[in-house]
Amino acid sequence: DTINITLPDGKTLTLTVTPEFTVKELAEEIARRLGLSPEDIKDTHNGKTLDPSLTLAEYGITPGSTITLEIK
């Protein structure tokens, strides 16, 4: 299953994830792909900052969802 990550420059990154991924694991994968530190990444969905300890499923993030990435 894939989700879309909207980057600060407007580009989109597509990642393969499972509903059990935590937001922290997602940030780590994004950081790895972009050459950043996971601590520099802030993920938001529907205007809410995502708690790193919760899973994508707990936020109702499903395949095809879009998450907005902010760099701290």
Rank of each mutant, 00 (worst) to 15 (best):
L54E: 03
L56F: 01
G10N: 05
N46M: 10
S65F: 07
I71V: 10
T6M: 14
L36K: 09
A27E: 05
P63C: 06
T18P: 05
D51Q: 04
T55Y: 02
T62S: 08
F21H: 06
D51K: 05
D51L: 05
N4L: 09
N46E: 08
I3E: 03
L36Q: 06
L36G: 07
L69S: 01
H45K: 12
G47T: 04
L56V: 02
L69I: 15
T6D: 07
L56P: 00
T6H: 14
I41W: 09
L56K: 00
L7A: 04
G10F: 03
R32T: 07
P8R: 08
E70R: 04
L50M: 10
L54T: 08
E39M: 15
T16Q: 12
I67H: 03
E39Q: 14
S37C: 14
R33W: 15
T6F: 12
I41G: 02
K24I: 05
V23W: 15
S37H: 14
E20K: 08
T6I: 15
D9P: 03
S53P: 02
T14M: 09
N4R: 11
I3C: 02
G35T: 03
E39G: 15
E28V: 09
T12S: 10
L15W: 02
T18W: 13
T55F: 02
P19A: 07
K24M: 09
T68A: 13
G35I: 02
K42V: 14
R33D: 02
H45S: 11
K72F: 15
P38D: 05
L50P: 05
E70V: 12
G35F: 04
S37P: 12
L36T: 12
E25Y: 03
T49N: 08
E29D: 03
G47D: 06
T49V: 12
T16G: 07
D43R: 14
A31H: 06
T66N: 10
E28W: 09
L36N: 05
P38H: 08
D1N: 14
L50A: 04
L15I: 14
I3R: 02
N46H: 11
V23E: 00
A27I: 15
G60E: 04
T44P: 14
E25A: 09
T12F: 10
A27D: 04
P19R: 05
P38F: 15
S37I: 09
G64S: 02
A57E: 11
G10H: 04
P38C: 15
N4E: 06
K42N: 09
D43N: 15
E70S: 05
I3L: 08
L34S: 06
G10P: 01
S53M: 10
L69M: 06
K72P: 09
E58W: 04
T55N: 03
E70N: 07
K42S: 13
E29G: 04
G60V: 01
N46W: 14
I5D: 05
G64M: 02
I41F: 12
I5H: 06
D51G: 03
G10M: 03
E28T: 08
K48T: 11
I5E: 02
V23N: 00
L7R: 03
T66F: 06
S65W: 05
L69E: 00
P8H: 08
P8T: 10
L7F: 13
S37R: 10
A31D: 01
T6S: 13
R33A: 11
T49S: 11
P38Y: 14
G35S: 05
G35C: 12
Y59P: 01
T14Q: 11
T22Q: 01
I61F: 06
E39T: 14
I5K: 09
K48F: 07
I61M: 03
L34M: 09
K11I: 11
I71D: 04
K11M: 11
T66R: 03
E39A: 14
G60M: 03
A27C: 14
V17C: 05
E58I: 02
P52N: 12
K42C: 15
G10Y: 03
S37Y: 13
I71Y: 09
I67W: 03
S37E: 11
P8S: 11
L36V: 14
T14W: 06
K72D: 13
E58Q: 06
E25V: 03
R33G: 04
L69K: 00
H45E: 07
P8M: 09
L7W: 05
P19F: 05
E70C: 12
E29P: 00
K24Q: 10
T16P: 12
V23Y: 06
G64K: 01
K42P: 12
G35D: 07
L15E: 00
L50I: 11
K72Q: 11
P19V: 05
G60A: 02
G35P: 01
T55C: 03
D51N: 10
F21C: 12
S53T: 11
S37L: 10
N46S: 13
I67N: 01
V17R: 00
I30C: 06
T2Y: 12
E29L: 10
K24F: 07
G35Q: 07
F21W: 14
L54H: 08
G64E: 03
L54W: 10
V23C: 08
A57H: 08
N46P: 09
I61P: 01
K11H: 13
Y59V: 15
A57C: 07
L13G: 02
A57S: 09
N46G: 10
V17W: 15
K11W: 11
I71A: 06
A57P: 04
L13E: 04
T6E: 13
D9S: 13
S65M: 14
L36R: 10
T49Q: 11
P8N: 09
P52L: 13
L34I: 10
P38G: 06
T62H: 09
S65Q: 07
I30N: 00
E29N: 05
K72C: 14
N4G: 06
E39D: 11
P52M: 14
T66K: 06
P63R: 02
F21K: 06
D9N: 13
I67E: 00
L13Y: 07
E28P: 00
D9Q: 05
K48R: 13
I67Y: 03
K24C: 08
H45Q: 10
T68M: 14
L36I: 14
K24T: 04
T55L: 04
L34A: 05
K11V: 11
F21E: 07
K24W: 11
I67G: 00
L36F: 10
I30W: 00
D43T: 15
K48Y: 04
D9G: 13
L13T: 04
K42A: 13
I3H: 02
D1C: 15
L54N: 05
D9C: 14
L36P: 01
I30K: 00
N4M: 09
G60I: 02
P63Q: 05
T12C: 09
L26M: 07
L15D: 00
T49K: 13
T22R: 03
S65E: 04
R33L: 12
L13S: 02
G60P: 02
T55V: 03
T18Q: 05
E25W: 05
I71R: 05
I5T: 01
I61K: 01
N46A: 08
I71S: 05
T62W: 09
D1I: 15
A31C: 11
P38N: 07
L34W: 03
E70T: 07
E28I: 10
E25P: 01
R33P: 00
H45W: 15
T6W: 11
E58P: 00
P19K: 07
E20Y: 07
E20V: 07
L15K: 00
R32G: 05
T22I: 01
L26T: 00
T62P: 06
E29A: 13
N4F: 14
Y59T: 11
K11C: 13
P8G: 10
E28A: 10
G35M: 04
K24P: 00
Y59H: 14
F21A: 07
E29H: 09
T62Y: 14
T49L: 11
Y59W: 08
V23H: 01
D40W: 15
K48L: 12
K42Q: 13
I3F: 03
D43Y: 15
V23D: 00
D9A: 05
T2H: 10
P38A: 11
T2C: 07
P38V: 15
L50Q: 03
G47A: 05
T66W: 06
I3W: 01
I3G: 02
P8A: 10
A31M: 08
V17H: 03
H45A: 13
E29K: 06
T12M: 11
F21S: 12
I41K: 02
N4V: 07
P8F: 04
L50C: 14
E58T: 02
G35V: 02
D51P: 05
S65T: 13
I61C: 08
K72V: 14
T62R: 03
T22N: 01
D9V: 02
N4I: 09
H45I: 14
E25T: 04
A57D: 07
G60W: 02
V17G: 00
L56Y: 01
K48A: 09
L26I: 03
T49G: 07
E28C: 11
S65D: 10
G47P: 04
E28K: 07
D9I: 03
I5L: 04
I61T: 01
K48V: 11
L15P: 00
K48H: 11
V23L: 12
E39W: 04
R32H: 09
E25L: 06
S65K: 04
I5W: 00
E29F: 12
A57I: 12
T68R: 14
K11D: 10
T12A: 06
I61V: 08
T22K: 04
Y59Q: 15
D40A: 12
L54I: 08
E25Q: 13
H45L: 14
I3V: 08
T68E: 12
E70W: 04
T44W: 14
E29Q: 07
T18D: 05
L13V: 09
D1K: 06
R32E: 07
L54M: 15
P8L: 10
H45C: 13
S53N: 13
G64A: 02
S53E: 09
I41E: 01
I67S: 00
V23Q: 00
I3Q: 03
T14G: 04
T49M: 10
D40Q: 12
H45F: 15
L7D: 02
T44G: 11
G64W: 00
Y59E: 08
V17M: 06
E29R: 04
E25M: 14
R33C: 09
E25S: 06
P8V: 08
K24R: 14
T12N: 10
T66P: 01
P19M: 08
T68G: 06
I3S: 03
